[in-house]
């Protein structure tokens, strides 16, 4: 049962990787990375039960948190173009909008 689950998760990881490699837009890649992280968490959890080392589950939890931080950072960069608040109000105007 666990073996089937881990193989299915690996297939899903392969599909997410294919989307990250080919993905035409930035959002495809971000979604693929996010999904890849989720699948890694699941794979580690399944392997933990498969091998009987359930203490590895803590690592799966850490992965879930870190994956979230990375995706939020990527999305913030894509939306704003930078990580710092601007002092100049004109900079807040989005690309392509009229100032």
């Amino acid at each position: 049962m666990y073996i089937a689950a881990s193989l299915a998760i690996l297939v899903t990881m392969g599909l997410a990787l294919a989307r990250a490699l080919s993905g035409p837009t930035t959002y495809d890649r971000i979604a693929a990375v996010n999904m890849h992280g989720t699948k890694t968490v699941l794979l580690i959890a399944v392997l933990a039960f498969l091998s009987g080392r359930t203490d590895v589950l803590d690592i799966a939890l850490v992965y879930a948190l870190i994956n979230f931080i990375g995706v939020v950072a990527a999305l913030k960069l894509v939306e704003q173009g930078n990580f710092h608040a601007s002092d100049n109000p004109d900079d807040e105007v989005k690309q392509g909008e009229q100032k």
């Binding site: 990250a20 890849h36 990527a74």
Partner: peptide
């Protein structure tokens, strides 16, 4: 940008 995203995937895979 895609390379940075792939670095994230690489790191997850090696972990």
């Amino acid at each position: 940008f895609a390379i940075v995203m792939l670095f994230g995937i690489f790191s997850l895979l090696s972990a």
